[in-house]
Write a protein that binds this DNA or RNA. Structure first.
Length: 685
DNA sequence: AGCACGCCGACT
DNA sequence: GTCGGCGTGCTC
């Protein structure tokens, strides 16, 4: 943990200035200002909002301290424990504190020109609310303790669920991390409910983190049914800034019992938190990729640790990290087996694409299997992880491939356009080759559009839907589509992984996964883990129909050893095999990684910078690979290089990176080169 | 990130 | 002679 206190120099009030891209600035000491409260400060030629992070001292006599202009709050807007968490994030993920606070605070608080509400309802230490600003409440809320007993839905838990819930509730009041390993349909949510009910009974709050918005409406309905008289706050990217701000205020004032939200909800100011739950803990979307790169799961673990409360990580396909942590006793593992799914009603089939005829990426055998399921009035799901019509447009005569002018990548063919999926650049599909003017342009490879078109022609009677990002932009309602599927109106869906999780389709008996070869042979060491998770998750969708569920995988390498382990012995066996490989290669979870990437128009600049960084880190005893071109070496006109830093000691890595950042700023080495530091990167592309 | 300072090209 | 291009550096 970084400490900003320093005994030398003039006493000051230390302020994190929002939008400054620094940790803090010192201002003239103000005795009574509260840590965690907002202030308005002069900054350059403008004024900014800042958050008081403590008393400090300014050692440099050349700096004249300015005075704080306005003290906005007389209480910690950010509670101390949340501020501590932000400081930890800033230190661990190598990001300026102001960047962390920007993510943690609602937008409204960042702007000094916003009217300031000083009439903020203060929560008393015992957790009840001083009334007087009832307008903050959107819906009436009964006393929480009374509400639990009168839940609308009566659910009987099975043995495993009861035991899991008991273990968790017994841990209330101290830190303990649980890994709830429950296959699809095993009823993880009911276990969460039991634990949350116990927390609410203690007049404490529960924080539930889910990976994506797609899941929230369904989950929210279940939460509302289970806790009808409890105030549930929803936080995700789809809600308005105003609504988000309101929920933040209500949480701060102890008026919310449950927060259900996506990764940024981990920053909700709940001061009487009793439990944290991270659902689908393996999911990649829990790691933010832009701006501040943090893992909501790991931040959640730290939050629970600091708050001395239990945390539950739930998944049907836990990450290797979490399973390894369970193995060495860091997490207490709780298993849930399925009520519905057994080996008898789920069958995998690998289609060898080298020995089968296929059209538009679909083998004739696969098509026959699809027809069988449709004939039984069952539903079918076809996955391809690529939107558009085809990933490549090739000139049959001169061999020219249409490439993006700004990136090292091919343009993806869509209906009438060629689009770069990396920078968004798009052009009208040309009638003939731009080089040799031949009209023989052929699409190579498959995307959702192409598969959808092909299946529409060979199965004209079937009611079909395509679901991918392009399609969702046109008609806004993902839910309408899902409803059509749930009600059995739609018989076949072609889509990307955006529909892989969370949805129950009662009549779904067949899942077809096309084009898994890219993942089977990917250079990214996590590709197989992710493929195993995807296959297992979607297989769970197919195993609940009346007829036996089937999963069809098309591949050019049907003998792939790890694929066969997954298919024959299941996800746990795949994990075991992958862990052996990771240990041999000294990769996570047996080592810690940081990816440092530098971008500039001129290649030599990031190259020189990364070389300096490499030497510096090597002196600190870290192992550094590179500099090497990033997977997409040129993106939007920028040359991208990267180094990969490896260590078996998390602390040593952290200290060296912190030193590195100080060195870079003091020597002003970065200037106009775009540098990003990704601690615990989740994909290396 | 903003926003200013600063040193070289095409204009009234 | 100036207006303005965006490279570089600072904000307590």
């Amino acid at each position: 943990m970084a400490t900003y206190l320093n005994s030398l120099g003039r006493k000051s009030t230390r302020v994190c200035v929002l939008g400054s891209y620094h940790d803090y600035f010192d201002y003239v000491f103000l005795p009574d200002v509260v840590i965690g409260s907002r202030v308005i400060v002069p900054f350059g030629k403008k004024t900014r909002v800042g958050v008081v992070i403590g008393p400090g001292s300014c050692a440099d006599p050349k700096i004249t301290l300015k005075e704080i202009s306005v003290v906005v709050d007389n209480f910690p807007l950010i509670p101390q424990e949340l501020l501590d968490l932000c400081l930890w994030i800033s230190n661990y993920y190598q990001a300026p504190l102001s960047t962390v606070l920007k993510v943690a605070l609602p937008k409204k608080y960042r702007d000094s020109s916003e009217p300031l509400d000083l009439t903020y309802p203060l929560a008393d230490p015992r957790g009840s609310v001083k009334q007087g600003s009832d307008d903050l409440l959107t819906e009436p809320r009964a006393s929480a303790s009374g509400a639990v007993s009168q839940s609308a839905e009566v659910i009987t838990l099975n043995n495993e669920q009861s035991l899991a819930a008991l273990s968790i509730t017994q841990a209330l009041g101290h830190y303990q991390s649980f890994l709830l390993y429950g296959v699809t349909g095993s009823g993880k949510t009911e276990v969460y409910f039991e634990a949350i009910a116990a927390v609410i009974k203690l007049q404490q709050q529960a924080l539930v983190i889910v990976p994506e918005i797609g899941l929230t409406p369904i989950l929210l309905a279940r939460f509302k049914a289970r806790f009808p008289n409890v105030h549930i706050g929803i936080v995700h990217s789809g809600i308005s800034d105003k609504q988000r701000h309101l929920i933040w205020q209500q949480s701060r004032a102890n008026q919310v019992d449950i927060i259900l939200g996506t990764r940024s909800a981990i920053f909700t100011p709940l001061t009487n938190l009793g439990i944290v739950i991270v659902d689908e803990e393996h999911d990649l979307s829990l790691k933010q990729q832009d701006n501040l790169r943090y893992s909501a799961r790991d931040v959640a673990l730290m939050r629970a640790h600091k708050a001395h409360i239990p945390i539950v990580l739930g998944s049907a396909t836990p990450s290797l990290e979490s399973l390894y942590n369970a193995e060495r006793g860091k997490h207490h593992i709780l298993y849930l087996h399925s009520k519905a799914l057994t080996d008898d009603n789920l069958q995998y089939r690998i289609i060898d694409m080298q020995n089968h005829a296929y059209e538009h990426g679909i083998a004739n055998v696969t098509l026959d299997i699809i027809k069988e399921h449709l004939a039984l009035k069952q539903q079918v799901l076809v996955f391809i992880n690529r939107r558009g019509f085809a990933p490549v447009l090739l000139c049959h005569d001169c061999g020219l491939i249409m490439d993006c002018s700004a990136c090292d990548s091919h343009l993806t063919l869509h209906q009438h356009k060629l689009i770069c999926h990396h920078c968004g650049k798009n052009i009208i599909k040309p009638k003939c080759c731009v080089k040799c003017a031949s009209p023989n342009l052929v699409p190579v490879g498959i995307g959702t559009q192409r598969v959808y078109e092909y299946l529409s022609t060979v199965l004209p009677e079937t009611k079909m839907l395509r679901i991918d990002r392009d399609q969702m932009q046109k008609k806004r309602s993902f839910e309408t589509f899902l409803q059509q599927m749930t009600e059995g109106e739609t018989e076949l869906i072609v889509g990307t992984q955006m529909l892989a999780k969370g949805h129950h389709f009662p009549k779904l008996s067949l899942v077809v996964i096309l084009d898994i070869d890219a993942s089977l042979h990917s250079p990214d060491f996590r590709a197989l883990e992710h493929l195993g998770q995807l296959i297992t998750q979607v297989a769970g969708r197919a195993g609940r129909a009346q007829v036996p569920g089937q999963v069809v995988l098309q591949t050019q390498t049907p003998k792939h050893a790890l694929l066969n382990i997954l298919v024959q012995q299941g996800y746990s066996a795949l994990v075991k095999a992958l862990l052996v490989l990771r240990q041999e290669a000294i990769l996570p979870p047996f080592a810690y990684l940081t990816l440092i990437r530098a971008e500039h128009k001129v290649l030599a600049k990031p190259m020189a910078l990364l070389q300096i960084i490499k030497n510096f880190l090597a002196e600190q005893g870290l192992y550094v690979l590179g500099p090497a071109p990033a997977p997409l070496a040129r993106k939007a006109g920028m040359q991208r290089l990267q180094i990969l830093v490896k260590s078996n000691d998390r602390n040593r890595m952290n200290l060296a990176l912190t030193k590195l950042r100080t060195m870079l700023t003091s020597k002003r080495l970065v200037s106009n080169i775009h540098l990003s530091i990704d601690v615990d990167p989740c994909d290396l592309s």
